[in-house]
């Protein structure tokens, strides 16, 4: 009995230690974002003598953060909406009508989960389609790269929506398009929320696509703006920290609000297949 209690104490201490290890680096940034330049020099955990809220104002001004915030918002939301509509339409017909050809098409689509992007030759495609250094180009790239995994998650879910509903719709004279939008799509909502949150956060964190294909700084998303800001203000860790906080805050808020969907979506989706 005594060893049981000790073991349980050990487990709880261990859990707290792990949580701390995961949390301290993030807390470090928040603390230092509120310090003066000299205080933040050491980047340690000591609390600031007085809160320097003005750091955020400086960063927003100097780092052109408002512009990049709206860029990120545009890229993340537009690509998420695009990928959700395209992925659910494709997953729906491929899952419902499993002919030989459709199974091959599904396989071909989800092969993209493993395939790496060839960023070098992609420039040729981007030039040919006149999407180089354009916002719409980044949106399309983000959506296209999110498609394979989105199709995979939605495809599995479509099987759980009863076919009888489709048949009832057809009997009532629904066109295929109406059947999809007014009957099936609302029933896919749980998986769409999960896919939507994952794609949004993925697009918000994305760094490599704009690094390759956006050279004008007024089109940069938050990630690229932060990296550039770091290059210019390396010695001012208080400002860099403030910039990091502002970049990360949106994803952390979405995570805390939707953590049930995110954790269950990312885990059950991958465990059950």
């Amino acid at each position: 009995m005594k060893t049981g209690k000790l073991l349980s104490l050990f487990r709880n201490v261990f859990a707290w230690a792990l949580s701390l290890i995961m949390f301290i680096p993030l807390l470090l940034v928040v603390i230092n974002a509120l310090k003066t330049k000299t205080e933040a020099n050491g980047m340690n955990m000591s609390l600031p003598s007085s809160f320097q809220w003005s750091n955020f104002a400086v960063v927003i001004e100097e780092g052109k953060l408002i512009q990049s915030f709206f860029n990120s918002l545009l890229y993340a939301s537009a690509s998420t909406i695009l990928s959700i509509i395209l992925a659910s339409a494709a997953a729906y017909v491929l899952s419902r009508n499993r002919t030989r050809v459709n199974k091959v098409l599904y396989f071909y689509l989800i092969l993209g989960i493993a395939m790496p992007m060839n960023f070098v030759t992609l420039t040729k495609v981007m030039q040919a389609t006149h999407l180089m250094n354009t916002q719409i180009g980044i949106i399309i790239l983000l959506a296209a790269s999110a498609l394979p995994f989105s199709v995979f998650l939605i495809y599995g879910f479509v099987s759980s929506v009863p076919r009888e509903l489709d048949e009832a719709g057809i009997v009532d004279g629904c066109s295929p398009l109406r059947l999809f939008f007014s009957i099936v799509l609302p029933l896919l909502l749980p998986v769409i929320v999960t896919v939507g949150i994952l794609n949004f956060m993925g697009a918000w964190s994305d760094f490599i696509h704009p690094l390759y294909y956006l050279n004008s700084s007024d089109k940069w998303p938050m990630t690229l703006a932060v990296y550039n800001f770091f290059g210019r203000f390396q010695v001012n860790w208080n400002l860099v920290s403030a910039d990091i906080v502002l970049t990360t805050l949106p994803v952390v808020i979405i995570y805390l609000l939707g953590q049930k969907f995110i954790i269950s979506g990312m885990t059950s989706g991958s465990v059950k297949g």
Binding site: L18, S19, M22, F23, P25, L26, M201, W204, S205, F207, T223, V226, Y227, I244, T247, T248, V251, V252, Y255, Q259, I262, I263
Partner: peptide
């Protein structure tokens, strides 16, 4: 807490 680092952008 344990899941938190996986949602923070790798760049950050």
């Amino acid at each position: 807490m344990l899941f938190l680092p996986s949602i923070v952008p790798m760049l950050v």
